[in-house]
Design a protein around this nucleic acid. Structure first.
Length: 418
DNA sequence: TCTGGGGTCCTAGGACCC
DNA sequence: TCTGGGGTCCTAGGACCC
């Protein structure tokens, strides 16, 4: 049964960069960013100076996603840099999905620029999968102006590995009988879920190619790398059987926001203000998701990139901004020594429970009910008119935004779990 | 004039219970 | 007084993805 599945993985080529390029051409710009060394990147002055996406010509200079702009400029001094515009990317992503929906409702959005499609048992409707893939790919290019890669196989892992083979604007198959020829010669780092740390461990035992891992002793890999070893060994052999999850079958486990501050924070008052602005945003998102949380966590990254986290399980679930803020500040005060300069602050809520199950306990004071009404009233106004309309007095003239963070709406982020 | 932000999952170790 | 062992829950930290 599983061998009969037909899974597509669609991956937008240099997504952010392609989308910027198309948009700018539409605006009458003459230069196509895709054809020159260019990147989408943040602003180094606010300490957000990393590469988010690169053009293929930029790749020729060995510029890599995630590296600093400073670094990239040394490799290529005439590099063109553009700022990200996430709203645009969401629109482009949605437009692509609208086209895909015409072919099948079985779509899993894996990220802004990646989708899995299940075409199992649809040969009568669509004919040959490779021809279908070309049709979809060419239609996206023609109607939306950007190119995609399509990977075809009978599970999600192989389809994803296939779409990654040669770029851009290509269709690849990677069926089980092709693994040996197409996937095993690739570097170990190219395997999904093999990151820097796993790469190090594998190379240390002489495993450098995906084929080396596939043919290594399963028990040895499992012993050394535990459950992760079990998974990647199976991946290297093309073994994977997760389903294409349509819509929101995957329940959200937690949500958070964090920010790298443009200066080092050295006083408690400023830190608390930044935490408040994070709580304002994250608590609103929590309520919007119709959840309450039972665990609150605070993360601190120092000027030297040392990380520290502190979390607390609550006696009762909450979604109240003020209540959460009190917990967050107390966690922060316990975790921070009062001296180490702070570069980055983050908060995270987990242990989510649906808020419909919420019942006022006997110990709850009436104030709490009032605060809930206040929170929801403010949420309504902010959603309608924007977050700047209502700002706490403490932020005025502080130089700190009243709300920090947020998340692109309308699509689930489900990265790293197939 | 370095090094983002949104997620999920796993593991180790300690506390506590029987 | 010479000290087991199974289980659960919690926290901190790390690894991975896009």
């Amino acid at each position: 049964m599983t061998n009969d599945r037909i899974i597509f993985h669609i991956d937008v080529n240099s997504a952010y960069l392609s989308w910027e390029a198309v948009y700018r051409l539409q605006q009458g710009e003459k230069i196509d960013l895709r054809k020159i060394p260019s990147v989408v990147g943040g602003n180094p002055e606010t300490r957000h100076g990393i590469i988010l996406a690169k053009s293929i010509p930029a790749k020729k200079y060995k510029i890599q996603t995630g590296e600093t702009l400073h670094n990239a400029l040394q490799k290529c001094p005439n590099l063109t840099i553009v700022s990200p515009s996430y709203g645009l990317y969401m629109k482009c992503s949605n437009a692509m999905v609208e086209i895909l929906k015409e072919y099948t409702p079985n779509i899993q959005r894996f990220s802004v620029d990646e989708c899995f499609l299940d075409f199992s048992n649809m040969e009568n409707l669509h004919g040959d999968p490779v021809e279908l893939a070309h049709k979809i790919k060419d239609r996206i290019h023609k109607e939306l102006g950007f190119t995609v890669n399509v990977g075809i196989s009978n599970n999600k892992l192989l389809a994803k590995m296939a779409s990654d083979l040669k770029k851009p604007d290509m269709v690849h198959t990677l069926f089980p009988h092709e693994i040996k020829e197409k996937m095993w010669p690739l570097d170990i780092r190219d395997l999904f879920m093999v990151g820097a740390s796993t790469e190090r461990k594998l190379r240390a035992i002489g495993i450098n190619k995906i084929g080396d891992l596939a043919q290594a002793d399963y028990n040895l890999i499992k012993y050394r790398l535990k459950s992760h070893g079990d998974m990647i060994w199976k991946y290297a052999n093309g073994i994977e059987d997760s389903t294409v999850r349509v819509a929101n079958y995957m329940v959200m486990k937690g949500l958070g926001n964090s920010t790298t501050i443009s200066f080092d924070v050295t006083d408690r008052k400023t830190a608390h203000l930044i935490l408040l602005s994070l709580v304002e945003m994250t608590a609103m998102r929590l309520r919007d998701s119709e959840n309450m949380c039972t665990v609150v966590a605070v993360k601190i990254k120092s000027h030297e990139f040392e990380r520290r986290s502190h979390q607390r399980k609550l006696y009762a679930a909450t979604d109240c901004t003020n209540e959460i803020y009190k917990i967050v500040t107390s966690l922060f005060n316990e975790a921070w020594d009062g001296e180490t300069p702070i570069r980055h602050l983050g908060i995270r809520f987990s242990g989510l429970v649906p808020n419909e199950s919420y019942q006022t306990s006997l110990f709850d004071d009436r104030n709490k009910e009032k605060l809930r009404i206040l929170d929801s009233t403010i949420d309504d106004i902010r959603m309608k008119f924007g977050s700047k309309l209502i700002t706490r007095a403490s932020f005025i003239n502080s130089g700190i935004r009243g709300m920090t963070g947020g998340v692109a709406e309308d699509y689930p982020l489900m990265t790293s779990v197939l």
